[in-house]
Amino acid sequence: MPMTESFKVWFMEWYASIAQKFYGCFIEDERWRFLWDGLLVTLEVAFFAVIIGVVLGFLVAIVRASYDTSDFSGKATGWRRLGRGVFRVANWFCKLYLTVIRGTPVVVQLLIIYFVIFASFDVDKVLAAVIAFGVNSGAYVAEIVRSGIMSIDKGQMEAGRSLGFNYIQTMWYIIVPQAFKNILPALGNEFIVLLKETSVSGYIALGDLTKGGDIIRGRTFEALMPLFAVALIYLAVVMVLSAGVNKLERRLRSSDH
């Protein structure tokens, strides 16, 4: 059986070379640490950026949705007039923020924040990345939340106000909980997008997961293995996140009546 014999030899050689490459990429000099440390940085940046994004997104969304649904008819005097003025300015700034952030690439925003805005401070790269991705994500979250708020029947706001709740209380107790349930899938999706977007952090020489794989590639001159490893890790994290979002969604839906 010469055929099987030669296949066996080929297979042994192939296996040996794979094992050697694997050893070179991940085991030798503890290179797996680049991936592990990189993953931790990626998760850290994504986690804190999400928090900034959600807080910022909700604030901007509430200003925008309130502005779009307010009644500016009737004359205003004194404090009410001043309130309207402040409100107009706030709405204008929110609109500007949304336009600029959604109209420019996130890499450019990251570079500007690190090399321009924080140029004269010795700021931690992780912090710069958290701020850049948080501010970026906030713009997308804001539009998701705004559409969620606008999708709630306006009778809900009127019912809340007619009981005597003020605007903020009605938003907090009545509108936002309902909107949140509706937008959860879109928010979950936004977090997954954000996690993947942090892969450009290497532009400010931040050692995230992607950068970790790239460092291994540079040291070993082996591209396939470290890059596939990076891709697999992202995929695994994204799948865990999606499963989590799905579970939360199901739980919320089962309490939906």
Binding site: T77, G78, D153, E158, A159, R161, S162, F165, K181, D256
Partner: peptide
């Protein structure tokens, strides 16, 4: 403008055509 609208509304109950109960 000096009247507190929220306090006023507490004293005036309102019932709507479409109920507007809080579904959650």
């Amino acid at each position: 403008p000096k009247t507190n609208i929220n306090l006023h509304r507490q004293r005036m109950g309102m019932v709507f055509q479409h109920f507007n109960l809080f579904p959650h």
